[in-house]
Design a protein around this nucleic acid. Structure first.
Ligand SMILES: [Zn+2]
Ligand SMILES: [Zn+2]
Ligand SMILES: [Zn+2]
Ligand SMILES: [Zn+2]
Lengths: 145, 145
DNA sequence: ACATAAAGTGTGACTCAGTCTCAATTTAAC
DNA sequence: GTTAAATTGAGACTGAGTCACACTTTATGT
């Protein structure tokens, strides 16, 4: 379980090892992601950041999201919208999502049976699994008539 | 298992029941989808159709894909690209996808254990499952070193 | 077959997420 | 402090998809 300081350390490490620079913008964006709702999109985050730090550009936010994804501090995923979603990649080694089609509420889960079965299916089809993504869309308690 | 004639019937039926028109464009697009690779995207399809029927517009192709999705003749889904993929919704009541990250090859599968487990997970979290989508990304035999 | 009303179409302008270019700025390291 | 390389902000650009609207086609009734 990665908190802010561990994430920061991971970032500094990666930057150092790859002859990249530790900039104020990168620090600020990482800080703000930790303040932000767990599942977010780039444009939301950019608008939020822009309000507080009006010199940070959209390009830098997008570039930093890519960087943090490569490092494994955040994860880019599709949660059923037609643009990318992101989340901190720290709660569990892996989890999938239940999404309410009405209110957008997101519930996370990790299930060993499904994980195991996916590895078996991949093998049976001659593939080496690298990653996977499961979204269950439905209606939450508040939105079932 | 829905062949072209069953799909056409389904389309005509839906149109009749909703006071919509059976047009040449809609017929042509349905025909061409049946000629096309099983997993495709809208822009590919539009370019392909445009070559043979140079009066059919992009807007009509997109509008028809929406229509056919609503009827359940095709299905719109995310196969890991940053634009929508489509496929005929006829082979199995439901299936998911294994996708090679290198060559893009798509293998379909349907697994009862996973399907059942998803229903259980939804229940346990107080959700009614409406649909779901599972993509396993990996490397196929030809692309594993 | 013809008239009519409503649905559908093509065009091109538009939106929106995301990327790119490039001059100006900042960082890391000596 | 100097310097070279990396980074940034601004705004132009791209590509998928949508929209408005004048024009065309379809379905229906006669
Ligand atoms: Zn809900
Ligand atoms: Zn999550
Ligand atoms: Zn492959
Ligand atoms: Zn498929």
């Amino acid at each position: 379980m990665l908190d802010f300081h561990a994430a920061l350390k991971k970032l500094r490490n990666h930057l150092k090892n790859n002859d990249l620079r530790f900039t104020n913008e990168r620090l600020t964006i990482l800080e703000e992601i930790f303040q932000f709702p767990p599942h977010f999109d780039a444009e939301q985050l950019f608008i939020y950041i822009r309000k507080k730090h009006n010199h940070i550009s959209r390009a830098t936010v997008y570039r930093t999201l890519d960087l943090l994804s490569q490092i494994g501090i955040i994860k880019k995923e599709n949660l059923g919208k037609d643009y990318a979603s992101y989340e901190l990649d720290y709660k569990m080694p892996h989890h999938d999502h239940l999404i309410c089609e009405i209110c957008g509420k997101v519930i996370e889960f990790a299930d060993d049976i499904i994980e195991k079965r996916q590895r078996e299916i991949s093998e049976n089809n001659g593939m080496v699994m690298v990653r996977h993504q499961l979204q269950i869309f439905g209606r939450c308690k508040e939105h079932t008539e």
